[in-house]
């Protein structure tokens, strides 16, 4: 019995994989600001800030995979009058979100490494705290947009019964 439990489960096809993928970027991108915040701690701060960057990179890559697999899966969704507008909003907002987090990830990388790379040019060794606080505020606003994308996806599944399916073999 344990033998079969140690075998990996079957992978759905690309157009059915969206539900498997989509929770990764949401979790990763929502947890990374916590690491950004811990980045303000003295001494250990920089390690947390770096961990935040790693989570953001993984989450953003996940967002691209989620959007692309979602587009494939959306072709299997029948556009009833109720489903069509919610699905369209979900797709458009998801497209926006991946762009937002690409920009945020790049900005956080610049804030972490930019000053060190430019240290010969008589700039401060670390990005000013005010810049990091402004980043955190912008990040939290984008996290709300991300939460709304997830909420729309949740409505499609739990309110309208939209499902990605595969034969499970």
């Amino acid at each position: 019995m344990l033998g079969s439990a140690l075998l990996p489960p079957p992978l759905p096809p690309w157009d059915g994989i969206h539900p498997l993928i989509v929770h990764f970027p949401i979790a990763l991108l929502l947890v990374s600001p916590l690491f950004v915040l811990l980045g303000f701690l003295p001494k250990v701060g920089r390690g947390f800030a770096l961990a935040g960057l790693v989570l953001m990179v993984l989450g953003t890559i996940g967002a691209y995979v989620a959007v692309e697999s979602g587009e494939a899966g959306a072709e299997l969704v029948t556009r009833t009058p109720e489903v069509a507008p919610v699905l369209q909003q979900h797709r458009e907002l998801a497209d926006t979100v991946r762009v937002l987090f690409t920009v945020l990830t790049a900005v956080w990388a610049v804030l972490l490494f930019g000053p060190a790379l430019l240290k010969n040019k008589k700039l401060p060794a670390a990005a000013p705290t005010v810049a990091k606080i402004a980043f955190l505020v912008a990040y939290l606003l984008c996290a709300i947009v991300l939460a709304n994308v997830g909420h729309l996806g949740g409505r499609l599944v739990h309110q309208y019964g939209v499902q990605a399916w595969f034969d499970g073999k």
């Binding site: 979790a27 390690g47 961990a51 993984l58 399916w165 073999k169």
Partner: peptide, 29 residues
């Protein structure tokens, strides 16, 4: 002192991977 949080972040990622992998349901034939 930088390694600890990086490890924390990595284990968070692995936890998400594992929990999502077991969440996929199967359907009848």
């Amino acid at each position: 002192n930088e390694r600890v949080p990086v490890l924390a972040g990595t284990s968070m990622f692995l936890a998400v991977v594992l929990s999502a992998a077991v969440s996929m349901g199967q359907e009848t034939r």
